[in-house]
Simulated assay, not measured.
Amino acid sequence: MDSITVFAPATVANVACGFDIFGFAVDNPGDQITLTASPEPGVRIIDIIGDEGRLPREANRNTASIAIQTYLQHINRTDVGVDVVLRKKMPLGSGLGSSAASAVAGVFAINELLNRPLTVRQLIPFAMEGERIACGSAHADNVGPSLLGGFCVIRSYQPLDVIRVNTPASLYCTLVHPDIEVNTKDARFILKNEVSLKNTITQMGNVAGLIAGLMTPDYDLISRSLVDVIIEPVRSILIPEFNEVKQAALENGALGCSISGSGPSMFALCRDPQTAERVGAAMQQAFLSVGISSESYVSEINQQGPKVLTTAEVAS
């Protein structure tokens, strides 16, 4: 192949009680990248579409190109040349894993272009380097599920241990992105360095309960476990009308509702697509009551991760 176009999905990280250890992929939104082989060695960003000029075009500062460069260095293929066109099909600074989707799309695409010298799981560390450029931390709770699909647990970083957990086939996610922005670094800065033993025990119970509920499956247990007593109480102050939006989701049938990643997007898990649509409309209305417009997405848990797009899919 001389050229390839790849889609990588957005993700919900933390998933209420699982700060920095839980994440899952969704069908929509996501990012799209096109790599074209070049006789000139190196990685060059030709264009970025949909970012309103906000993302760096320099290859050593962009999440997608950094992931590609790190990958090529690892497999000793610095002789390879690729031109990159990135299409941002999701909002920036949204808490939906925007930087992760770009990094995942880039490293998955170059691995495909070179006939898969590495497995998909082996690509995670290179996508993490893209995250390091974006927010200063090489975390995997977004890139893991974006690459592997499904619901992932980041059990350990040293050594890296990412576990994929089965989820109910009928589980749906509602995502609502209000028209405000929360900086990831700011959202981390306000967190407390120490947590009480009481809250730690409560959170550990919810973490275990959520995994058990997903694998059983037990929707009531999922609902009881989607509770965050450590991070949400602090970060929710950055999102106007957070409590009202969350209450609207629960009153309309959501199993649970919390912050997606560092925010400002909020997610809700639901038993079926009809409930997920109703919950999304209610959450949007709650934001709109104080003059905040928003975007809403509803999808199943994306089980595939990134995918190579056909010519017809690219055109659409």
Rank of each mutant, 00 (worst) to 15 (best):
L210N: 01
I190D: 03
S156C: 00
I163Y: 06
I201H: 14
K192F: 04
E194Q: 14
R235T: 01
D186F: 03
L171T: 03
L148F: 12
F126H: 01
L238E: 08
V182D: 01
S156P: 02
I163R: 15
D218L: 14
K185S: 10
E181R: 15
I190V: 02
L148T: 00
I133E: 14
L191I: 05
A140C: 01
A187F: 00
D220L: 06
A208F: 14
V229L: 06
F151M: 03
I231C: 11
H177P: 07
Y172L: 11
P168N: 11
L148Q: 11
T167D: 00
E232P: 03
L197S: 07
L210T: 03
V229T: 07
I237M: 12
L238P: 03
L197C: 05
V162F: 07
G144A: 12
I237A: 12
D141K: 11
S236D: 05
G149R: 05
P233F: 06
V229F: 02
M128D: 12
G144D: 13
F189T: 01
L221S: 13
I230M: 09
N193G: 13
P233R: 00
S137G: 06
F151T: 03
V182M: 01
A140Q: 09
S223G: 14
V229Q: 13
L148R: 08
I180H: 11
C152N: 07
E232V: 07
I201Q: 04
L148S: 10
G136C: 04
V162S: 13
P125A: 13
R235C: 02
I124Q: 11
D179S: 10
G136I: 00
L210Q: 02
L171C: 04
M204E: 08
S236P: 02
A140W: 03
I190E: 04
R188V: 01
T167I: 08
A140Y: 04
I222N: 02
P233N: 04
